[in-house]
């Protein structure tokens, strides 16, 4: 039986179910316990599991990330909540130089089964320092897996997978603006393997690839295009690293056209990697250059018109799709 629940509830259910299954799982972060979560993701968890397992930290990202990494290397399975990935930059040394590298450096002896999660990217007029989307940063790092879901159903299945089955460090990207969004989530327990994209809408004329909250732009553009007789296929990556490029390639073989919509800055972004892969593996199938819409190549400003201009939107996506289809404007 499916119910409609909010994204934050889906995440909470994932954690609650895995907490009940395995005592080694704990949650650590700023305001996760007594405050019930800065975005109420962990609401009620302190009451059920107590302060041994739901742990408030001081504002000390580097320090508590390091404690969690050490705990993961010594037999526990921590979940670290960052209030935003913008603050996690302070802990990047632990993620990059310890969590991601220790298995290799130790010749396979020390693994680090840990989940780092929290909201990522822009969320309105928050100014430059609270608005960066970090998927491409972490996707660059061998040893990590990077997950960036677009809806509560995927988020729950992927987070449960990360906590229970993954023995490698996981970067889990959410979004402030998605926490309240409802989606259909079954009562029954389920897991979604990391590394598999999802074709959200089948189509034959053009492939649109996106992830996280930009999926709304991708799907919105697809509906607009439908009105003009263009049947777009829309793929939700769900996992950024590893990247399920085979699903994109299979789609491009059918549509011969590819547009990527993402919130990253353009240089060395997720679309850069996808474009490289598809031109190499699918050169003969392409009838137009691969195109993309990214965030503007600038820090995000405050003014609402500048925010709107800097981020991908439906209108520009529709226009770009028409360009790769060589349609009249």
């Amino acid at each position: 039986m499916a119910r409609s629940i909010a994204f934050r509830e889906a995440l909470r259910e994932a954690m609650n179910e895995e907490f009940r299954r395995d005592d080694r799982v704990f949650l650590m972060g700023e305001e996760v316990a007594e405050y019930n979560g800065a975005y109420k993701v962990s609401q009620g968890m302190l009451d059920e599991f107590g302060d041994k397992r739901v742990i408030d930290t001081p504002i000390s990202e580097l320090g508590f990330a390091a404690v969690a990494v050490g705990a993961a290397q010594n037999g526990l399975r921590p979940i670290v909540e960052f209030m935003t990935w913008n603050f996690a930059v302070l802990a990047l040394d632990q993620i990059l130089n310890t969590a991601s590298k220790m298995l290799a450096m130790s010749g396979g002896q020390l693994s680090c089964p840990i989940v780092f999660r929290g909201p990522n990217g822009s969320a309105g007029q928050l100014g430059a320092q609270h608005s960066t989307a970090f998927e491409s940063y972490y996707a660059n790092i061998p040893g990590l897996k990077v997950v960036s879901p677009s809806n509560g159903y995927d988020a729950k299945g992927l987070l449960k997978q990360a906590i229970r089955y993954e023995e490698d460090p996981i970067i889990f990207m959410e979004s402030e603006v998605m926490y309240g969004e409802k989606s259909e989530v079954p009562e029954e327990e389920y897991y979604i393997p990391i590394g598999k994209a999802d074709v959200k809408k089948a189509g034959s004329d053009v492939t649109i690839v996106s992830f996280n909250k930009m999926m709304k732009v991708a799907l919105g553009a697809a509906s607009e295009l439908e009105k003009e007789g263009v049947n777009a296929e829309v793929i939700d990556l769900r996992s950024i690293r590893p990247l399920d490029w085979m699903t994109i390639l299979e789609s491009v073989k059918k549509t011969n056209r590819l547009v990527i919509v993402e919130e990253q800055w353009p240089f060395a972004s997720i679309s850069s990697e996808i474009a490289y892969r598809i031109q190499k593996e699918g050169f003969d199938y392409l009838d137009a250059p691969i195109r993309r819409i990214t965030a503007a190549d600038a820090p995000l400003h405050y003014a609402p018109n500048l925010v709107a201009l800097a981020l991908p939107d439906v209108e520009r996506t529709v226009k770009l799709v028409k360009e790769v289809m060589y349609m009249k404007k």
Binding site: Q73, G75, L76, T98
Partner: peptide, 10 residues
């Protein structure tokens, strides 16, 4: 230093 504290935490 922090990682060591985490080992102790565990």
């Amino acid at each position: 230093i922090g990682t060591g504290a985490g080992i102790a935490f565990a």
